[in-house]
Write a protein that binds this DNA or RNA. Sequence first.
RNA 1: GGCCUCUUGGUCAAGCGGCUAAGACGCAGCCCUCUCACGGCUGAAUCAGGGGUUCGAUUCCCCUAGAGGCUACCA
Length: 541
Amino acid sequence: MDYKKLADLLYPNIKETPEDIFAKYPPRQLKDGAVVSRFAPSPTGFIHIGNFFQMFISYSLCKVSNGVFFLRMEDTDSKREVEGAREFLYDVLDRFGIKCNEYPNLDGKDVGNYGPYVQSKRKEIYQVFAKDLVARGKAFPCFCKKTEGKEEILEERKTKFLENDEREYDPCRDLSYEEVKKHIDNGDKFAIRLRTKNTGSERITFHDLIKGHIEAKANAKDVVLLKNDGIPPYPFAHAVDDTLMGTNVVVRGEEYISSTPVHLEIFDALGFKPIAYCHNPSVCKIGDNGNKRKVSKRYDPEAKMMYYFEEGYPTDAVLEYLLNIINSGFEKWRAENPEKPWQDFRFGINDITAVSPIFDIHKLNDISKNIIAKMSAEEVYENILKWAKEFKPDFANYLEKNKDYAIKVCGIDRGGLKPRKDIYKWSMIEEYFGYMFHRPTEKEEIDNAENYKEFLSEYSKGFVLPAEKDEWFTGVKMVAEKLGYATDNKLYKANPEAYKGNTAKACEYIRLALTGKKNSPDIYELMTILGETEAKARLKG
RNA sequence: GGCCUCUUGGUCAAGCGGCUAAGACGCAGCCCUCUCACGGCUGAAUCAGGGGUUCGAUUCCCCUAGAGGCUACCA
């Protein structure tokens, strides 16, 4: 069989050779240990936290080694592409402050010298390599119908061989030149398949940066290299692109471990050097049946990165949470360096966990609380405003009109040695501090309406907001004592029946009048921010 | 079914042949206190099971079980 002739029959217009292509992609000049890696999303309209997780590992490895982190758009599956998805992708990276060294710009131009960074623009490159493979007898054209869901075809392939033979050779692998020519003349579309050199009994080993040494059955299947539309499925695109682009560490989900033998055989057929893999575990949840399962975009709101924007989590909180589950050393580092930005953390590949973590919203919340607690009132205000502009325009309006006041509210119990740590997402504010933005419309249950009324009417009589907290508290106690409340808690506890309540009870009434709630930050501080007039009005009911 | 990966408290985990098996979140209790939050203290809770190897296994080996993944002209 003259494979060269066959290749020319298939691709009469492809004149370039792999050498020509390689000439355009010179090896990168890198410092020792510099990692070149990439984020290779499909523009399907959302980013799954699992993809984001991988991207972040990849990014961190590049950053810490002063390497190159690039973005490659994997748009080979046009069926799944969604309008506006590319813009959204960039928006997400931007919000998290993730910068790519090389990427395809939205205007169609590339930033970087190893492009195009969009797979749909690389069709000819793939065909050059495919043609070369055919010319060397390592691949062949396949005119079969797609086998998806077609069990009988799959069965036919398997049963062609002896029992227990794991080979899946494609029926088209041994077509004669004449047969192929007939198809071509007929205008039939063809896919290109790898002519696997294996027979099903070979084994291969490879090293994974996270899992270590892995031994597996070698590929023995004539896998598709180019679909009949000329576009490669993932494995071939991965081999060609990552080789040309100089990727030296591929970070991907562990679901790819099983297909690594296929990738390795493709690299081998192409004559490429294999690339180091880092198969990282998937972010999971406990399902209804009590088992682990991957976080799913269908059932779990937190699967989509948009969720964190909508809820108003600070992006650093999400990143630090991820760092926490990726790198066991991060938490210790954070404890020792409470003031440093996460970017200073020396991300280590050896510390990447091999186990699928279960997403823990409590932990995220805790990290977020600590991050927010360190912000100034102004920062909090700016963040809330930014969030509200996007998701709560009315509230954003209010915040802008009452900026000074809103900043004061954001500053409640902020700073100092014991900052308040109860807010973990911006969407909480309106509900949480609602009473600071409008008079409470509802009140939590009052245990003794008569006492409540009596106390407030007495307390609000001639109410003046003192300049000092102590003074204010003394005032409260005076009124309380006058009405028969215990101001000494020990006395009260010893004989509760003798009093209407204690100072705490009196404060509860004031708090209720002011906020409608039984829990709130310091009453005096709230009154100071509300102002004497407003405070008095609320006390009078 | 076949192949691959994973297995320390509820969750994230330290541990790399000898420890009363760290720490964090969460949970419970106590203290502080005008309430909540913060902070402090205390507590409950873990080596999947079975075999080896060894003077000694959470740690090394094997088996079993459980969970996850792959088995497409999807990635």
